[in-house]
Measured scan of single mutants.
Amino acid sequence: MASQGTKRSYEQMETDGERQNATEIRASVGKMIDGIGRFYIQMCTELKLSDYEGRLIQNSLTIERMVLSAFDERRNKYLEEHPSAGKDPKKTGGPIYKRVDRKWMRELVLYDKEEIRRIWRQANNGDDATAGLTHMMIWHSNLNDTTYQRTRALVRTGMDPRMCSLMQGSTLPRRSGAAGAAVKGVGTMVMELIRMIKRGINDRNFWRGENGRKTRSAYERMCNILKGKFQTAAQRAMMDQVRESRNPGNAEIEDLIFLARSALILRGSVAHKSCLPACVYGPAVASGYDFEKEGYSLVGIDPFKLLQNSQVYSLIRPNENPAHKSQLVWMACNSAAFEDLRVLSFIRGTKVSPRGKLSTRGVQIASNENMDAMESSTLELRSRYWAIRTRSGGNTNQQRASAGQISVQPAFSVQRNLPFDKPTIMAAFTGNTEGRTSDMRAEIIRMMEGAKPEEMSFQGRGVFELSDERAANPIVPSFDMSNEGSYFFGDNAEEYDN
């Protein structure tokens, strides 16, 4: 993207840094990872977990959730003011799984939030270390993106479920800051804005008074975040219109849905970061690795190297396929839920299948599930090659597409044709070009129609051997075009429920 120079890199967003050079960025990201790792080690000690239990991804998720809940100030305040039966607002906890007599047992633990905050700050040299908290939120978000298709949420806001490739980060909490905003897809931002506008339509006082002023500035800020994701002048001009509207209503909703559809071809720039579970960072720190000293990046080879040398386990339900569970977590670790499966298959070195073909449910185990038949197995999170994460949407291309997802959002900077089903997408653009945004709409449609099938995206960008740390010898991959490109292809993934 041309304006790259004016933006802070995501590592800076990730670490609240002012302008830093590459070495400083690597050190501050490393410091953040160190903090998460030290916190995780301490929690495993508190909970008396064995090494194996500490490497269980379900335990990692519970521990991450506990610290996120302990620092969720708004919710904590709300819980104190609106006490609900049987919930102690000062405590947080969740299921911890232990191996007892050759069987997995679930144990519900409860801790004072104050105590968890103390352990977290102690692991982070006394700081609140917001960057580390956001990092864990993005890992949870990436896992949700890989596990669930947001059909219901899309339909509720009037969008087409086939636009799911635009929904990265749709389950990120509001408090995820600049680093969170960077990884949100165009569809996620559109959905947040539509929800806001709908509230304004239904509630006369939404934009009024002292609160209304705050609401208005939040609305304009979200519009600017979305505008910054678009790469064409016409899309940005249309966002200006939406932002400046005196009284946002149905016309703005129409414009936003139009823009979301246009992003299936004229893709937005959305950041991709490899955020790993805390149970990967903990053992690495415990083994003596100093992330701050060595430096770390979320968008280069580092996460690949770390996963190459990590042992992570997962509980497996009786009829689940461990290899499929591994694929789910591998995609989440690489922030690749909406990437082209052919690119992923090449990088991973084994075939990556669409969601609907995987015999696996989510990673988390519900409290009512029976533990008797639970097994555990090693997650295979290694890769054959590594590639640089991208934040450009890439230019655009036609490809055989599917009944489910009709476009992709690249996660890796790797040369390819970008699949999208042009006739299906263009069919949504018939007729409606009147109104105050008509010239911009016409211009956007013209650009979409001009998108050429034979153009290559990320020209000359390749993948790298894991021994090639400096990215000196790019390998331009070859793809098996007979395979499906979309992950949520004609899909039956479970729906995400809060």
Rank of each mutant, 00 (worst) to 15 (best):
K214M: 10
R99G: 11
M136V: 14
A286E: 13
I365A: 05
R342L: 02
R355M: 05
T45P: 08
R199K: 12
K87A: 01
L108D: 05
A179M: 07
N76C: 09
R389I: 03
P318E: 02
P322E: 02
Q12C: 11
I138M: 13
Q327H: 09
V100I: 08
K273Q: 05
L133N: 00
P248E: 04
S69R: 03
N473P: 01
S326I: 12
Q168E: 03
Y219T: 14
N397L: 07
L276D: 08
E469W: 03
Y313K: 02
E252F: 09
S367D: 04
S60E: 01
G450C: 14
R121M: 12
G5C: 14
A237E: 04
K31R: 15
D101E: 14
V100N: 11
R102C: 11
D240L: 05
R175I: 01
A153H: 11
L79R: 04
G185A: 12
R355L: 14
E469A: 14
N205T: 13
M66G: 12
H272D: 09
F71V: 09
S297L: 07
Q122Y: 00
K31A: 10
G94T: 09
R389E: 11
F291C: 14
E64R: 11
L344Y: 08
Y281H: 10
S310P: 02
K273G: 04
F479C: 15
A336L: 15
G35I: 09
A332E: 10
M1K: 11
L68G: 12
A387C: 08
P173N: 08
F71P: 07
L256P: 06
E292A: 11
P83V: 11
T134D: 06
D127S: 13
E46C: 12
R441N: 08
G185C: 07
I425E: 03
N144W: 05
R382Y: 07
K214V: 07
P474Q: 02
G209N: 13
E46F: 13
D240W: 02
K48N: 12
Q42C: 09
S335F: 06
P322K: 05
K98D: 01
S407H: 05
I265S: 06
T424G: 00
E11G: 13
Y496S: 05
K229P: 07
K227S: 10
H272G: 09
G300W: 06
V329Y: 05
E469V: 13
V414F: 03
E380R: 04
L68F: 12
Q4H: 04
P322H: 07
G126P: 01
P410W: 00
M137R: 03
R213E: 07
E494F: 00
R246P: 11
E494N: 13
Y289S: 11
T396C: 08
S60D: 05
R75M: 08
I347A: 13
F39Q: 05
A323E: 01
N432L: 14
R199G: 08
F488V: 02
P83H: 10
K7L: 00
E369K: 09
N370T: 08
L259D: 09
E254W: 09
L56T: 15
V312F: 09
K77V: 14
F458R: 00
N432F: 14
E380V: 09
I475Q: 01
A251I: 13
R121F: 09
A271Q: 07
I201G: 01
Q308C: 15
